[in-house]
Design a protein around this nucleic acid. Structure first.
Lengths: 130, 130, 130, 130
DNA sequence: GTGGTCTAGACCACG
DNA sequence: GTGGTCTAGACCACC
């Protein structure tokens, strides 16, 4: 796992960490069932505090992306393909509206917008198929 | 101006304010050339600190969405002034990748993803045509 | 607010604190809209660490019982009477099954059980009506 | 024995185990006088540590739900041995108050509360009559 | 060994 | 002054 943390970045370390792991899962670099390093281990690897890592893991657990297995530590969950959770999709739509609004202001057309969205999704999927 | 601020929301007030204005521009509720209220005016209307409004305006200016004139105050830029430059689109793609990655983890398919993206864009366009 | 923390108790301090506040809301000792003390304030009052209080507040926020208002700090939410959230009720049922099972093992009859449940609810409601 | 342990669950294994057995007794799947598997046996069946099983048994014994004989091992106590003593009921009331308080905060009415409590009890009784 | 909890002291963004 | 984040070092429950 290649997790890189930018200490100078404004976004909190634990969120960068969370995002890195999410990216890893999305690109299948992290397979379902795979174990994540222990909080202590990862903390020392990244020269970051234990609690910071713990917070990232807790957030991922809350999102249902990982589970904390006794003794095995944190493991990647298998996504529930069956349920395209409408609640989640609606929340996602709202979040995307922010970017969409900004894009419209910048003169981005509907076609360009969908193209960008598609690129974002496929950029991850490509790595996935490798 | 129909700006509503949620004081209990986690996102900073100045960002909510900025986002409200962006949404206003995107839906054409705010027309190019139109003047925004003065910092003092808007601050008192929303009962927030002057600095908060000023920060929002500064951020909008930095994004090239408004211009600040000495006399007229803040005015909405004309859409012709912002070109859908590839640099912006590539930055946007990176931002969207975060959401795309999370969506993939949650089992959202490419079709669902594009559908959500389209909905987000059209939700703003619909209001626009009213 | 009379919050008492038992440092010798096995249950974490932040949970005791959370429970105390929940009790306060249930008995109307804490009215909707009322402000809770700041984390620093409460922490010093209870001679407990700031973070411990913050954790309790965060948990209450997640449960939708309080909101963190900018500048006003944490304020009690007004319960949404309209929605008897079925999801919540089903989760609650599962939790209660644990106690019910134990009670059955101890020879508690259905009548006694319902009586105990009613007492627990009314014990809070009585204080409420004062 | 139909005991399922969730290694990813936050509640300790020994408590899950204890709760499973309690549920078994409550639903009469485990009859009074019946012998529980030996600590070694159950531990190997569930692939958990011996100490974990022993801890669960010890806790059940402390609650007066089983007895541990030298030769026969752990056996389920007969219901006649546990009387619905007022002390137990009062302790139970206090525990239930926690849930009741939370429910009140969430806007659950007295009727809904009693309904939920009744459902929890009957859910076990139904399985019992099968 | 693991994660969970608590403490203490620090910095920063926000308002 | 407020909460949010990060650090460092400690103890404990569970396994």
């Amino acid at each position: 796992m290649f997790i890189k943390i930018d200490m100078t970045c404004a976004t909190p370390i634990y969120e960068q960490l969370k995002q890195s792991i999410i990216r890893g899962i999305a690109t299948k670099a992290l397979q379902p069932g795979e174990e994540l390093p222990s909080v202590r281990q990862l903390a020392s690897d990244l020269s970051v505090n234990m609690h910071t890592v713990a917070k990232a893991y807790a957030s991922l657990k809350e999102d249902g992306l990982i589970s904390v297995h006794r003794k095995k530590g944190a493991v990647i969950n298998t996504p529930e393909m069956h349920t395209a959770d409408p609640e989640y999709l609606s929340k996602l739509t709202k979040l995307l509206e922010e970017y969409a609004a900004h894009a419209i202001c910048k003169g981005v057309t509907a076609g360009e917008w969908l193209n960008v969205c598609n690129n974002a999704y496929e950029a991850l999927n490509e790595k996935r198929s490798i």
